[in-house]
Nucleic acid binder design. Structure first.
Lengths: 227, 227
DNA sequence: GCTTCTAATTTGTTATCACAGATCAGGCCG
DNA sequence: CGGCCTGATCTGTGATAACAAATTAGAAGC
């Protein structure tokens, strides 16, 4: 394990485990279809099964994990239709968030977004994939935060987590955009200039390109997971 | 309690407790701001604190409950802005669902919706408020199911639950519509005739009227809850 | 009479234990 | 050699107990 104890999350063990598991899912440590076992995780983290059990239950409620009939949690196997649906909903909701953010945000908000994107690009070219994934997530969540819609933020987080396990496939692809054409730039510009239509379309383009690339790769991802 | 054991939900106690709590929230048994205590609930249901704890944790994850800093779950106190946001998102998502349902549904699906609405109206005029609330929820969820979008259904369920505790206020109001003008009729017609624009607008009108009425009542609801 | 400090109680968290259903291995029978 | 049965192990679930933090109640002091 990375650190002796999964550091973040507060003083409650269950919250730490939840946060740690979430990070592992984002980093695609678990493959789609993999079953997560209570005692195995508990032993690895050096805690009792109880808080692990709570964390797994919550992740199931959030849609990040799937509960099988015989009561065992596994990483969801995303079908083609389901992946399309998640991305369509993300495009709708994040599009709305970007538009709202463009109406509300101040210049320093756009600067913060630009800084996140810069860190992401840097991690990308340096080949630090996990960091790149984390910064990409941070970018999208920051847009939702800027919209001042906490309920929407929660929904988007849930959707994001559902395709988290697939993101590792992204890092094995060639670049989706030339750096200067990355849709994030138009998102930032739209938010900086108060152009809500631009911001919405740009984030939707970002998601659509991402979705199409992922859907093309889906067969091989699921085949690999079936082993 | 209504039944000696909260019957539904499967053979897992935690699932039964979750289902029971969800129903109690929809029926506004708990007032906004009320704290839900582990041992109290456990004793009332005749189970140990463990499954109650899991159920509460899941409801927090679903947004139906709110976790306070000092680690105690309570029914959320909805602010004006938050209620508006929830309803706006419901209008967007359920609007999409209704439109999609209109494209996909068969005649017998529209019949089923009409049957649900009939039961709801009947409960309404007979003064059986809890049943009316349940049937209303069933109507909206059925529309989402007909859209064939399980991910969207999950999101809408979460949003719905967030304003569940407020629904009791509805039953104390006069009718929002004359029976023959109820927006559900246009939803059913849109779905039956494949008119997706009509279905979307009708369900959005339903939600908007509901939201406006609730927002008008919100001050007195929250004042009552502060006691 | 009101505030404040302290002690008792309450409340959530976690670990441990006991149990039941599922899963898997090995061996038996066909 | 293969299918099926049986027992050992694995895995999740629920109850109980111990612990810590927080809340409350009561009494003392102003």
């Amino acid at each position: 394990m990375d650190a002796e104890i999964p550091l973040p999350g507060g003083d409650r063990i269950a919250a730490r485990v939840h946060h740690w598991l979430r990070l592992q899912l984002m980093r695609s440590r678990f493959r789609p279809g993999e079953k997560l076992k209570l005692r195995t995780l508990a032993e690895e983290l050096g805690v009792s099964p109880t808080p692990v059990r709570e964390a797994l239950g919550r992740l199931v409620s959030e849609g990040a994990l799937e509960q099988l009939d015989h009561r065992s949690a596994r990483v969801p196997l995303l079908s083609d239709e389901r992946l399309r649906e998640v991305c369509e909903l993300r495009a709708d909701l994040e599009g709305k968030a970007a538009a709202r953010a463009a109406e509300l945000a101040k210049p320093q908000d756009a600067d913060r977004l630009a800084a996140i994107h810069a860190r992401m690009s840097e991690a990308r070219v340096a080949g630090r994939s996990p960091e790149m994934l984390v910064e990409n997530e941070r970018f999208h969540m920051e847009v939702c935060t800027l919209a001042g819609m906490p309920v929407l933020l929660r929904l988007v987080e849930s959707l994001w987590l559902q395709c988290g396990p697939l993101n590792a496939a992204l890092t094995r692809m060639r670049f989706l955009h030339r750096p200067e054409e990355h849709p994030h730039h138009d998102v930032i510009r739209g938010i900086r200039e108060g152009d809500s239509a631009l911001a919405r379309l740009a984030i939707q383009r970002d998601i659509t390109v991402y979705a199409d690339a992922l859907i093309r790769r889906l067969p091989e991802i699921n085949v690999a997971a079936r082993e």
